[in-house]
């Protein structure tokens, strides 16, 4: 079984983001990047499928972006991926164009399963998985919480607003990982060192035959303060009085 795991590099969610002075975008100076957390869950699940279900599975991770991406792709190699592919482009692609690039990678690699994070935690679009499935004409299962290979496909549980839904899905398919699918492993120091010496396949976006056509442009970005002034109260009575004054109680 061949599993393709698309990944994205995103600003570390634990750091504070700022808008540029002109409000045109994100201040990227001094930003520290990490692999998108949901994508690491997808990598972990691919590794788990290899360990749990089909031993000779091949796991290929792919990133679409700038050369600096190597660090994040090596993190997936250190976790245990077999190969990493970097689709090189200097352009900051929107979800549609990422999906087009991934579609071409799928055509080249012919995986049985595309397993990816449900969304990237920078733009929070939650689109690429669904776009890719639609482009390929493959079935999709978004927000998955469990995955098991069964006769004729995969048995999946997915998170919905009202609880867990169970699906049986034919393969090949695109599935997107939600938070509770697993807990990604940490790579050991020797694995991290070894991954430093592994080659990363590279292909230019243009050589894949993708012509970038923007679909969504950021016109302005602001980082509003959510802070309020908290009135500290001493008792339940005071709180109920305050809520009655606010007419919410």
């Amino acid at each position: 079984m061949k599993i393709l795991v698309p990944t994205k590099r995103v600003p570390d969610p634990d750091q504070r983001v700022r808008a540029t002075a002109d409000g045109s975008g994100l201040e990227d100076k001094d930003l520290y990047y990490v692999p998108n957390p949901f994508d690491l869950i997808a990598v972990e699940e691919a590794l788990a499928i290899r360990e749990r279900e089909i031993e000779d599975s091949e796991i290929v991770t792919v990133g679409v972006g700038v050369t600096d991406y190597e660090k994040e792709l090596r993190a997936t190699l250190a976790m245990g991926a077999d190969r990493a592919l970097l689709v090189e482009t200097a352009a900051n692609l929107d979800p549609w164009n990422v999906a087009l690039a991934l579609e071409k990678v799928v055509e080249r690699e012919q995986p049985d399963l595309v397993l990816m994070g449900k969304q990237a935690i920078d733009d929070d679009s939650n689109q690429v998985g669904q776009f890719l499935a639609a482009r390929l004409g493959w079935p999709q299962a978004t927000f998955i919480a469990s995955f098991a290979l069964v006769e004729g496909g995969a048995a999946i549980q997915r998170e919905t607003d009202t609880g867990m839904e169970s699906l049986k899905i034919a393969l090949p398919a695109v599935v997107t990982a939600d938070l509770r699918l697993n807990e990604p492993r940490y790579a050991s120091m020797p694995q991290i060192m070894k991954a430093q010496r592994r080659p990363i396949d590279r292909v230019a976006l243009e050589d894949l035959g993708v012509t970038v056509a923007p679909r969504c442009e950021i016109v302005a970005l602001e980082v509003p303060s959510a802070n309020r002034t908290c009135a500290f109260l001493d008792s339940a009575d005071e709180l109920l009085d305050a809520l009655r004054n606010e007419e919410v109680c």
Partner: peptide, 8 residues
């Protein structure tokens, strides 16, 4: 952050 976006 809150982004203002346009679709092309």
């Amino acid at each position: 952050a809150i982004a203002t976006v346009r679709l092309c």
